[in-house]
Design a protein around this nucleic acid. Structure first.
Lengths: 342, 342
DNA sequence: AGCGTTCCAGAAAACCTTTTCGGCCCTTTT
DNA sequence: AAAAGGGCCGAAAAGGTTTTCTGGAACGCT
């Protein structure tokens, strides 16, 4: 009879059960199932059949305990709801999940205390490695050098240069954005971007200005820093137009800003892309594809960042740790909001 | 000397190391650290100090192996990029992370094969429970009844009623949305919503119509099903206005649709909320807060769904499994797009 | 002094799997 | 016929922790 405490969940079969059913020793059963050679074909057959009858799955805990490796990795994010953590997390999950590695997900919510707590918990679960995912590209404190497992920082680099960090190339992203606009024949380019407290805003502007300078051009007005919002995009655009600046392209620091910019441009009778080309950063599809017209944007390849971080953990485990900051390039996704000047 | 294979990662200290340093047996060390009683205070002191000196963290693998419980739970999502998985996942991570439970994250990408693979992998890691997170509210196939651990389905219910599913209350959400509009004095309410292939669209419409009927009202025209996009919101609104329907509120099936609706209303000279109130569903802040005016929306309380799912796993582990479909109510977040008729 | 108690420490088993090594039996070679 | 070799199986250790049980020492009591 089932106890009142609920349905009796059957204990999973152990290797001992399989061995007993097959009439062999535990050692032989193990070798048979793992393809070891010292087993007669007929015996192996019998063991495998027994294992299937019991739907035996080897206990990874025991295996890990013995091997000293768990095949698990901790993914420590600072804010799950964050726009940028998710794709990175997906890339990492992808790279690991394909193999035999499982991922522990922890959200520290930007709290250093909680972060330390999670690190300790993960270490006591004997993860083989750690990926620390930031929510913005500004450097963050290192977890320290003396951890017993390799650590890779993704998106937000560690302040300690002896750690390994994988980050998107914001300067390069600003550069390729401008190069795309130049290729469209645009020469009077304004830059409206987000919070100047963000590295990403400053570096994208830096790359954009550099690319303009190399083409012998100047931006229309100084880059306008503000906030990462549609509202700021609208405000800044209104200011820009009120100054009667001649503009044939607006490079926006984010897709949200670009949406605001496009709205005001349209309302004031400027055609996009015929009169003014607009592009954003991040390629946030919910924003880009619903824009009128769909928005050209620089995709920062965050999945790649996550994947690269995962591979870096593998590399470190295989004995080739790296250090420093490695950058992942972005790419321009061309949609209707940019087109060659006719 | 360090080997050429990389930095020699120090092996974490074991209980044996602690015991040796403290000059006691392993058993005594264990009892001292776990607050067991049969240890002299002075001995306990010595052990604790030794543990700290070695920064000893007990190996959870060994502990789990012995206890038969791992303190881990598998979180199986079908699409990480999905809009809805994330908050649920956050809620679950939150509820678990607060205790001593760690979460394995797996993304099956909507592929049943991959899902089975992940389930097997998780079971061989001896997770204590499983949460299956769907990406839409339509029922999905069960993982089966004979799993050795409790399973809770979140967002997307299981087709098998003997499983436990935690889902948002879409009918109720439609109802409270209409009730809010009625409270604002609106009586001529149109409903523009998304893909009719989605349960969520149909049920929200059902709830909305029911609430209208209870107030003795009819909707303005039939509910307009289409797609979950701004573009559809724009198209449907244009159609609605072209028919010269008198409308003082538009209830939209999603925030995206609402954004499109508001854009067209504004462009055609209708004031929001003075002439027409607009509200959406999902409370996707990136869309609602940037709208002009900010958009009133029904928050489906997805974090709550995730949290409830986590608690249901706990309950099942504690011996009180439940089954059936449990609904979580939503709540109206009032912003500028709805206001009493003046 | 002898006995029973109480307190504290340690030995050993258990959890489950993998791997090494020893041994048995059968075959082949000298 | 004896020795050598090869194929196959099982005993045992290892991994780190918790828990139970045994036992020694100190102490109080008769």
């Amino acid at each position: 009879m089932a106890q009142a405490t609920g349905p009796s969940r059957p204990q999973p079969a152990t290797l001992g059960d399989v061995a007993r059913l097959a009439g062999v020793s535990i050692a032989t059963a193990s070798k048979a199932l793992n393809g070891r050679s010292q087993v007669r074909a007929e015996t192996r057959e019998r063991v495998i059949e027994a294992a299937e009858r019991l739907s035996f799955r080897p206990n990874q805990l025991a295996r890990s305990l013995l091997a000293g490796r768990t095949g698990t990795v901790g993914l420590l994010t600072s804010d799950l709801e964050g726009r940028f953590s998710i794709p990175i997390l997906m890339g990492a999950e992808d790279a690991f999940g394909a193999g035999e590695v499982a991922v522990f997900l922890c959200d520290a919510r930007g709290d250093a205390i909680r972060e330390r707590h999670h690190v300790r918990a993960l270490l006591s679960r004997r993860v083989d490695g750690l990926i620390v995912v930031g929510s913005r590209t500004d450097p963050r404190p290192s977890l320290g050098r003396d951890l017993p497992v390799p650590v890779v920082y993704a998106y937000a680099p560690s302040e300690d240069p002896s750690d390994l960090s994988i980050v998107p190339d914001s300067v390069g992203a600003g550069r390729i954005a401008v190069e795309h606009l130049l290729a469209c024949g645009r020469t009077r380019i304004a830059h409206i971007t987000g919070d100047p407290g963000y590295c990403a805003a400053r570096e994208r502007a830096e790359g954009a200005l550099a690319a303009l300078a190399e083409a012998g051009l100047e931006p229309v007005g100084e880059p306008r820093f503000g906030s990462w919002s549609e509202g700021w995009g609208r405000t800044a655009t209104a200011m820009l137009l009120d100054r009667r600046h001649e503009v044939d392209a607006v490079l926006c620091g984010s897709d949200q800003i670009a949406r605001g910019v496009m709205d005001v441009l349209r309302e004031r009778g400027h055609r996009v892309p015929e009169d003014v080309a607009v592009m954003g950063f991040d390629n946030w599809k919910i924003l880009t594809s619903a824009a009128r017209p769909p928005l050209t944007s620089v995709d920062m390849n965050l999945e790649e960042v996550g994947r690269a971080a995962a591979q870096a953990v593998f590399a470190a485990l295989a004995g080739s740790p790296r250090s420093g900051i490695e950058q992942q390039g972005g790419r321009v996704i061309i949609r209707g909001s940019t087109a060659p000047l006719s």
